[in-house]
């Protein structure tokens, strides 16, 4: 992720950090995969308009992740059999 600008990199890290808060194994891993794939797919975007749109969208996703991550912790279920202790 070396090609990311400062702002993008901070957003990327914040997204991953918010995803890690999910107590649900499936949602947590989906969020990791989704965030990584999204940033890799848009790595080459240089058009400022498009970049602005992507960043705004990611910020909205970050808000959702933070809210839902908290809810996931409040109503946590036991771990799944595949999860390492």
């Amino acid at each position: 992720m070396s090609s990311m600008s400062g702002e993008t990199l901070i957003l990327y890290r914040n997204l991953l950090r918010a995803a890690a808060k999910f107590s649900s194994y499936n949602f947590r891993n989906y969020a990791f995969r989704r965030i990584r794939d999204d940033f890799v797919a848009n790595k080459a975007v240089s058009d400022p308009e498009k970049l602005k749109e992507l960043l705004t969208n990611s910020r909205n996703q970050l808000d959702i992740l933070r809210r839902q991550g908290t809810i996931s912790q409040m109503y946590a279920s036991p771990e799944l059999v595949v999860e390492k202790i």
Binding site: F27, Q68, E79, L80, V81
Partner: peptide, 25 residues
């Protein structure tokens, strides 16, 4: 069995799917 208080893996997506957190939001 390896359950030991854990929940099974969900592999019944034709019966129903989990509500996406983005949907719940």
């Amino acid at each position: 069995s390896t359950l030991n208080g854990k929940r099974p893996i969900y592999l019944d997506a034709q019966a129903t799917t989990p509500v996406d957190p983005r949907v719940l939001d």
